[in-house]
Design a protein around this nucleic acid. Structure first.
Lengths: 150, 150
DNA sequence: CTATGTGCAAAGTCTTTGCTCCATC
DNA sequence: GATGGAGCAAAGACTTTGCACATAG
């Protein structure tokens, strides 16, 4: 997603602008954490970000990384991958189905989508490896949460 | 996914048969845990399963639920929802994209799929609520793990 | 200068593991 | 009876939080 040094500094630039616009202070820690997130394009864990940042800021603490990432997420600067809550969830429904996830109450509902099931994955991923299954996750707010939110 | 009592006992029946076929002992605990998974169709957490099972088996311990669920998963009787590993992962790529996940090394790769992006969700979910975004997760084994696995 | 952010340490969740006793086959 | 499974307790991984000090604006 980052093609060149030019794009990298462009991203850092717009990051700083976004912080200013949102009233977030620009600290060394935040800059290094955002850089680390840009550098590790393959969805790093908090710990991977921490290790990366530590190379430049030796005194940074892991909880700062947690807090900063939470802030970035809150302000829409980054997203969490496949996040529901911190607990594993299970599925006895082994038939081909997909999930609706309410981002407010975390409830998961199954749905079916035969038109999607019959689609072939795009050619661009042909070299990736051996595909097992493909699933759709639709994120949003369920009607009961939608009501409560008014 | 369970429509009636008939289907419920059918599922329990095939569960017991699957256990026998795979050499898994049929214990009270396993039966109750599987029942709980069938009953809570909305993807319960381990703790929810534990609470449910405890109503019938007061001495069951949480670690038995963990171990049993892991066994069921290992034997293909259930699946884990959205599982990568136990750590959160993050994404600076805010453009519409999808994920390839290697089930062996847990690495995540981005890919793009405009044909999917332009699809409308199926009509069947119209009443669910307000849709935020839709994402595809493709699960499989990346080529480098595929090599190592030979 | 002031309020936001950081570091430290401690605690909170969720999950896994070693060992002994028990129950299924 | 033999062996795989359950229960207990303890530890491990990941994440959050309270408080005092530091620093950006």
């Amino acid at each position: 997603m980052i093609d060149s040094k030019t794009e990298f500094s462009f991203m850092m630039d717009s990051f700083e602008k976004a912080c200013k616009a949102k009233g977030l202070r620009i600290t060394h820690q935040r800059i290094e954490i955002f850089k680390a997130l840009l550098k590790h394009t393959n969805h790093p864990t908090t710990d991977e970000v921490f290790s990366q940042v530590r190379k430049h800021l030796r005194t940074i603490s892991l909880d700062t990384v947690y807090r900063t990432i939470a802030t970035f997420e809150e302000y829409g600067l980054i997203k969490r991958v496949h996040h529901i809550d911190n607990a594993s969830r299970f599925d006895v429904n082994l038939s081909e189905h997909h999930h609706l996830v309410c981002s407010r109450c975390n409830k998961i509902e199954d749905f079916y989508w035969p038109d999607f099931d019959s689609m072939k994955p795009p050619k661009s991923i042909a070299g990736w490896g051996k595909i097992g299954f493909k699933r759709v996750v639709i994120d949003g707010m369920c009607s009961s949460c939608n009501e409560k939110n008014k």
